[in-house]
Amino acid sequence: MDRKDHRLDGRVAIVTGAAQGIGRAYALALAGAGARVCVSDVTEPTETLAQIRELHGEAIGVVANITDQPSLEAMVARTIHAFGRLDVLVNNAALFGSLRMRPFPEISNEEWDQVMTVNVRGTWQTIKAALPALRQAGGGSIVNISSATTFKGSPLLAHYVASKGAIVGLTRALARELGPDKIRINAIAPGLVMTANVQEHADWREAKGGIVATRALQRDSVPEDMTGVMLFLASDDSGFMTGQTIVVDGGVVMH
């Protein structure tokens, strides 16, 4: 790989939810900056792996469920077996693209619980599974994914907005606990990003124009818009930052 970015040379990263969309962009960016990457998802991340290898990057693919602790522990074990260490965890996996926009009284208890289980408990469980390896490496960086909807109070997705607000709180609480281990934990809060799933979703196709109109930078957001901030948080460039949430939404929320 002929690359100019060497800031993650020698580092090892796990990206959850990396079979497509923003997660794939994160995995490609990490590999492009020199990291060896475990690409994880609930389905085989075949295409993401192929793209990394086309660029002569090093990666393994692991099928894992972030709500299942043995599955997560196996993911971390496979990463250590392949690459010997773990330095970076990007908690990208979440429920979003399949959710329909509806008033909160119309959200079923079952759907509410599913969103909280995946988006909040899943992130927490993944951090728990990765913690021993991060400690063994002498520290590292965790990048959580929140959402700009948390700061806007966006309507019609109450369960999703609440789950991503919980990620901000979790990030702050764990920053206090993990600081002594030299493990930093920060979050990215994207606005609406036009992944393939989002483009195919009727609700978001209808809402997109109004969202773009509220941005200071009035254009669609694409997955690659998120990778610069992710690399900053994953690398030593942000070595004295922890507990922070950075909004990347084109200037809707000025946080």
Rank of each mutant, 00 (worst) to 15 (best):
D5Q: 04
H6K: 12
H6T: 13
D9R: 01
R11F: 07
V12S: 03
I14P: 01
I14Q: 00
V15W: 00
Q20T: 14
A25W: 02
Y26G: 04
A27E: 04
A29G: 13
A31P: 09
G32M: 05
R36K: 15
D41A: 15
V42Q: 14
E44W: 06
A59F: 08
I60T: 03
V62K: 01
V62H: 05
S71Q: 07
A74W: 00
R78A: 15
R78L: 14
I80S: 05
L86I: 09
A93Y: 07
F104L: 12
P105W: 00
N109P: 09
D113N: 14
V115H: 02
M116F: 10
T117E: 14
N119Q: 10
V120I: 15
R121K: 12
G122L: 02
W124S: 04
I127Y: 09
A133K: 02
L134E: 00
R135G: 06
A137S: 11
N144F: 07
S146V: 07
A148V: 05
K152P: 02
S154R: 15
V161Q: 04
G165S: 11
L174Y: 12
E177V: 03
D181H: 11
A187V: 01
I188Q: 01
L192S: 07
M194Y: 06
N197D: 12
N197T: 15
Q199A: 14
W204D: 01
L217S: 12
D220K: 00
T227C: 10
V229E: 00
M230T: 10
L233V: 12
A234V: 08
A234C: 11
M241D: 04
V248F: 09
D249E: 09
V252A: 03
H255W: 11
